[in-house]
Amino acid sequence: MGTPLGDFIRAKRDATSPADLGLPDDGRRRAPGLRRIELATRAGMSVEYLTRIEQGRDRNPTLPVLRAIADGLSLNVAERRHLTFLAKIAGGACVGQRQLNPAPLRQEVRPATLETLRLLEPAGVAMVTNKLGDVLAHTSAFNRLLQPTGLLDAEDPNLLRYLFTDPRAQQALLNWEYVADVQTFDLWHAPTLTAAEWLKAEIAAQAGPEFTARLSRNLPPESRPWQIRLPGGIVTKWQREVLETPAEPEQQIVILIPADEQTRNAFAQGQLEQDHSEQDRWGQVTPLRAV
């Protein structure tokens, strides 16, 4: 039986061409990607040992072995962090901790985190979310940008549920597939295993292969701008930046920064203005859960 660690290494190897690593390609490959022997050679290990790791027969590779595999695949920082995380799961180092904490994720946002959002007002497009995709608080500018998309219509907005169950998501997000990849990948790092499994089951039943295929991939998506269509057909591009909150590690502040001049100008010229409700006045952070 395989492991997420082995699946990740194999998936990354399949997605890496020899040319990416400066290796010659003889053109006689049964499948695209890096051969196992090529990775084993670059990592300085035997093909047999690499095979055992990929197939889940060796669940406790040492840190030097993980570093060698990471170097062999030329993993970036996010991918190296994910590789280490999956190794802990494979070896059982963090599974017990995750299973011993089946309680739902904390939904309340700390006053200090809300104050950070207030410092981004009135122009900052930002929200507080967790690794399950629950939107816990947001700035007024976030409301003006995302309200027309339907994301905030639900009583308890959730990005993952919105992406896979609301048809408006694919109309509003021009690169919907990429955003879906990002939010699905976040589930790997949900601090409560029970809550993550519950959400996976709920969404899988509604979304089917669109969701489950992404979940099994477990490759960290590359950073790209989110493309959001505004009313009137204006296309805006936003770079997603994530600020971790150490005091509340299951939560994070997500900031959307204009990624091009058209987006910056549209925002500056007030083209994102909407009719505001009492909960969305200029300069007011909207916590969706009581503190």
Score class of each variant (00 low, 15 high):
108 E>H: 09
290 A>V: 12
90 A>I: 03
250 E>F: 06
44 G>Y: 13
132 L>H: 03
160 L>V: 13
65 V>R: 12
212 T>L: 01
247 A>K: 11
153 D>A: 14
34 L>F: 09
133 G>W: 01
120 L>D: 01
43 A>T: 05
7 D>N: 13
244 E>S: 15
270 G>S: 10
265 N>A: 12
71 D>H: 09
94 C>T: 15
164 F>I: 00
224 R>W: 06
144 R>P: 02
49 Y>G: 10
291 V>A: 15
141 A>Y: 04
167 P>M: 00
262 Q>A: 15
40 A>S: 14
265 N>Q: 14
176 W>S: 01
243 L>W: 11
278 E>P: 00
157 P>T: 04
13 R>E: 10
118 R>W: 05
59 R>Q: 12
175 N>H: 07
263 T>P: 06
81 R>V: 12
56 G>I: 11
221 P>T: 08
107 Q>G: 08
224 R>G: 03
142 F>L: 03
203 I>E: 02
162 Y>N: 00
7 D>W: 07
76 N>Y: 04
38 E>P: 07
143 N>M: 07
160 L>N: 01
287 P>Y: 10
228 I>E: 10
80 R>Q: 15
86 L>A: 07
273 E>W: 07
12 K>E: 07
62 T>W: 12
142 F>T: 02
66 L>I: 13
6 G>C: 07
5 L>W: 10
104 P>E: 06
288 L>S: 03
205 A>S: 10
